[in-house]
Design a protein around this nucleic acid. Structure first.
Lengths: 344, 344
DNA sequence: CTGAAAGCGCTTACAG
DNA sequence: CTGAAAGCGCTTACAG
């Protein structure tokens, strides 16, 4: 069997309590004893048993990370690797580990979260998404267990600590940008309104139109489901309208490129015949033709700050609820052009 | 405090041992008692404490997943999300959880793995990469701890259970494919030879050239480091050769698109002036221009089978060492053309 | 089919 | 500054 604290204690001629205190680097142990014990730990290749320590100390030093179920947006490139990298960076510097949810369906995810919380598997939880009427979130909220969300919560906005982009604002800015190029017929493609990120972006789009005195038309909005099931057809329908859009706001770069592909089949060129802006600034978007104008949403930051917030809550349960919008940047590339003018 | 097995026992008028056996659904407990105990567990909202159970049962029901350090290939889209999804799917069906490594540097990763193993944090480990002379792998090998690799090990190939694509073979096939289109001057761009996946692909490329009686030229190989640091320059140098290549094999779709971009600046068009094939079949590669001919490597499978192998080892330490090559498929799109002929 | 008891490997008041 | 003792919440031979 592995070497235990008892073995170390015996070998170093001290009590187990003392060994334990040396591990925790307690100031109440003399430097001399620490040296002696550490030498023995080294020699016996002792490593504290994680489970035993957690059980006794009533903490797990790990945070649970819950992804949206696999069919949905949060699992897409490039979001997932980057947000995880942000979380890991923060967790690592506080000596925390990451426990990942494995559930495929919503129900499985819910069950997993319940057992994480009730079974004290983790000290806190990060929800990597924000959905409308989410059972998992509601459970977490009721339980009083420390948790953070990446995404503005649908409900209880000022009772839950979260991190997000200011999606309403950035969608507004994106539309304003298109206005500045002379566009007034602007379509919006691809938001799954079950997710707050999508409904926020759609609302920003609405607001921008309203403020500009433009009316909103349902025909200019293609829902995520529709796009996924009949992508090509939906884009073709859009372009066959009496007044087809001169610009499109896409929910994600991958969606944008798919749209561009369908437009091509209609011999409609980007940006010559129609402009397109998108969100998330995928790694490829700089290289591929046409280079896409897209909003960088600082995914790493989103993960990093979510973990920071959570760790703060875990170490101090009394800390105030807070939220923060991570900054974004519209990266202008070559997918938009001025109406009846030059390529920007 | 949370409700414990003792509370349930008292309430159900049985001993804690009995409650424990009901949790494990032991056949030695009467159905009647099970019903009674379960009713109480339900009523008290009892959930077994994960840490306590692990400590007593000497198993953790979790597997550790170790990513390569963040600057390297394994963290790239689209590999990471897909492989994780595969692992999660397998783990979930065996009621296992995932513990993710958080280290950023090689040294941190090594330390984490040591503490996972020695601290009995997990029951087994999946290494998501295979590197030359990897300290972490060597440690795992020596420790006798159950582990699996995604990627052919550099050493001890028949002593380590792993899963991989047959990278030598697929690189060979890719080159043969190019031969079949009439290409004989074929460059290879982007492998980091510290990773076995890259050296295997490079070797397959060599072998194919040799078998065709073609000689290998160093000028036709651009190392990953060189491409990353002076990407544009390295591609331009390649094309300024007296006998520039007529086709390029790229290590990854992202690399391929970057190359295409640099070629464009030289007014060299794909596939008209040069052909390009790549590996990994990125989600975007079907949509973007030119649609890329690329090898699909079944990333989900890679993760899924690695987890299956590991779980088998964990539940039966005597199981034989094994390895498996996951199938691949060359997806022909529009980035290659027949020499002096039509676009394929 | 069920229970009493020991034990998993730690931590942490309490006492000195 | 250090130790003896209780306890974290389970599981599992052993006994009946």
């Amino acid at each position: 069997m592995a070497v235990t604290i008892i073995d170390v204690a015996r070998e170093a001629n001290v009590s187990p309590s003392t060994v334990s205190r040396v591990i925790a680097d307690s100031p109440r142990i003399s430097e001399q004893t620490k040296r002696k014990v550490r030498e023995v730990m080294e020699r016996l290749a002792y490593h504290p048993n994680f489970q035993a320590r957690n059980l006794a100390a009533k903490s797990t030093k790990t945070i649970g990370v819950i992804m949206a179920h696999s069919t949905s947006l949060a699992f897409q490139n490039p979001f997932f690797p980057e947000v995880i990298r942000g979380i890991c960076t923060s967790a690592h510097s506080s000596q925390y580990g990451i426990y990942l949810s494995t559930g495929g369906t919503e129900e499985e995810i819910y069950q997993e979260v319940v057992s994480m919380v009730q079974g004290r598997k983790v000290d806190g939880i990060i929800l990597l998404y924000s959905r409308v009427n989410d059972r998992t979130m509601n459970f977490l909220k009721r339980s009083g267990f420390p948790f953070t969300m990446v995404g503005r919560p649908y409900q209880y906005e000022d009772e839950i600590t979260y991190i997000d982009n200011d999606n309403k604002q950035i969608a507004h800015e994106v539309v304003d940008y298109l206005f500045s190029l002379g566009h007034e017929q602007i379509a919006f493609i691809g938001g799954n309104l079950d997710y707050v990120v999508s409904s926020d972006r759609l609302e920003g789009y609405h607001q921008a139109l309203m403020e500009a005195g433009l009316s909103y038309s349902d025909a200019y909005f293609i829902h995520d489901d529709v796009f996924k099931s009949q992508g090509k057809g939906s884009v073709h329908d859009l372009m066959k309208l009496d007044a087809p859009p001169t610009a499109i706001v896409a929910h994600d770069d991958l969606v944008a490129y798919e749209i561009i592909r369908y437009l091509e089949e209609l011999s409609i060129q980007v940006p010559k015949d129609i402009s397109i802006v998108s969100f998330n600034n995928h790694a490829l978007s700089a290289y591929v033709k046409p280079p896409l104008t897209s909003v960088d949403i600082s995914i790493f930051e989103l993960g990093f700050e979510a973990a920071n917030f959570l760790l703060e809550m875990v170490s101090n349960p009394e800390v105030a609820v807070k939220s923060h919008f991570v900054s974004t940047a519209l990266i202008e590339r070559e997918s938009c052009k001025r109406m009846n003018g030059l390529v920007e």
